[in-house]
Every structure is written in structure tokens, then in C-alpha cells.
Write a protein that binds this DNA or RNA. Sequence first.
DNA 1: GGCGAATACTTAGACAGACTAAGTTAGTAT
DNA 2: ATACTAACTTAGTCTGTCTAAGTATTCGCC
Lengths: 141, 141
Amino acid sequence: MTTDDTRGLAESLSRELRHLVLLLRRTTAGQPITTQQYSVLGSLEGGGRRMTELAEEHAVQLPTMTVQINRLEEAGLVARAADPADARVRTVELTDEGRTRLYAVRQSRIAYLTRQLSTLTPEERAAIDVALPALAKLGRS
Amino acid sequence: MTTDDTRGLAESLSRELRHLVLLLRRTTAGQPITTQQYSVLGSLEGGGRRMTELAEEHAVQLPTMTVQINRLEEAGLVARAADPADARVRTVELTDEGRTRLYAVRQSRIAYLTRQLSTLTPEERAAIDVALPALAKLGRS
DNA sequence: GGCGAATACTTAGACAGACTAAGTTAGTAT
DNA sequence: ATACTAACTTAGTCTGTCTAAGTATTCGCC
């Protein structure tokens, strides 16, 4: 429709957001880790990160991240290390097992989404493709 | 790019889904009810529903819905009633206060999303507008 | 070079939200 | 009438989130 009715679009988007959350939940249903754990592992893929960074990136408070990292550490998926330049800082990195787990869950998620997307028409898939960069910008202000 | 790379699209979508969840969280941050409570109230807007229906619609188990409705009932936002045709069934409906609260939170959410959307270009908004129906179809199979 | 403030993180305690298992009450079928 | 099924609640456990308070380390500055 390409209208200029920003508020009307906001209403539609508001309605769809819950649906997308349910979709996300389904992508990791039955997986050996939760959606949040998967998400944190993903942040570590590029190398070690500090606790503060992780908390900010995931929009949670530091204590929440402490708890999540504790559990991932107990599960052997991440390891804490010290920052040689600042003894207050703890860095977190993936273990080999954590990396393996991350990739396995990612493949499973992508397979699920691929199946879902393949039920759409090519035009619908193209529409989503075009909209993703715009959706990515939302909420970053 | 309107490619036919469904798997590649699935990967992009997988990456964006978490971002959209954070966006949803922000839409009800600071509100007097949680995202889930808002969502349940929304299901009751069209009239009374039974517990089983609500649980299915929100993709949770019955006991989870029982707890949520308990809290909403304690808060005076919904009321339980009996089904005259089947004494096992409990129906749930909005109270006047619940309806008022639902509308207030909805306005606040939509205002937030409108502000966010207004930071995009008209083309980006148009892209989201076109993609929403396709996103709505995802995961319904 | 030492003292107060700020920073990075953890611990503790609370509560929402989700699950499974088990219990209660009511309808259904034979 | 009895057994089965359906609808819901209760109880117990776990994750995810928060705030408040505690510990350890670094920084600023005199």
C-alpha cells in the first residue's frame, strides 16, 4: 500500500510482534539450550567479550548476565578469563563444546525457518527480504 | 535482492528475530502490566474465552494460563465465569478496568512504535508495510 | 603515595513466566 | 453404574528478569 500512514503501520506492527515472538520460541523448542542461551553464545562467536558488553548488547542488567553466564559455564559451554590489563574485568569466551552447540542449534533454527519460508510464495519471501534491513533499524535509536 | 535463496533469507531472519523481541520488550517497558498480560487482555477484547482457548492461542500449557489469569483476576482486570452448558468450563472476560487498561497500554505501545517508525525513510516504512502480511503467515502451518 | 570516588562484577532476594505431574470435578459412553 | 475422558487447578521446579547491597580494583587528584 506504501501509504504514509505511519500510525496505522505501527498498529499493524504492534499486532504482529507477538506472533513473531511465538515464531522465535518455536525455532528453539526442543533444543538443548534456551533461546536466551543461544543468543548469548552467538555474541561470543567472534571472540571473548566482557560481561558489561554482553549485558548491554542483550539489553539486560549485569546481574542477569552473571546468572546466565554462570549457567553456561556450569554446562561447559563458555569459560571465564581475566583481563590482563584490568583485574576488575572478566571476559567470557566459547569453549569448543559451546561452539559446537551454537552451530548445531543455529542449523536447526535455520532449517525450521527455511521450512516455514518455503511455504510462502516467492513474492512474499522477496517482501520479507526487502523489509529486513528496515526492521533491523527499528528500536536502535 | 529478491533472490530465491530461501535458506539465506532464513539466516537473515534468524538473526533479526532476537532484535524484534527486544523491540517488543521496549514497547511495554515501564507499563503497568507485562507484555504477556497485555497480550492475554488482547485476546479477551472480543468477548469471553475459555481457558483452553487462551492457552492454545498463546501457545502455552493450561497451568501457565491458569497462573496468568489468577494474577489478572487479582489485579481486577479480568473476571472468571461459569459456562452454563458445561460446568467444567471456566470462561474469562475483561472487566471495565481491564478494558481501560488494555486500551491505555495499546496506545502507549503504538505511540512508541510510531516514534520508531518515523525515524525510518518512507521507503523503509513501505517495505515493512508490504512484508507484514507475509510475516503474519509464517509459523502458522 | 595515599584517599575518596568510580567502575566491574557477584551475591542475595524477589517475582513473572514457563514446564510437568498429579489432583479434582464434571461430562460421556457403554 | 462404572470407567474413561475432558477441563481446569494445585504443587513443585527452573529460567529469566529486576533491584539492592557487597567486594575488589582502578582512577583522579592533592
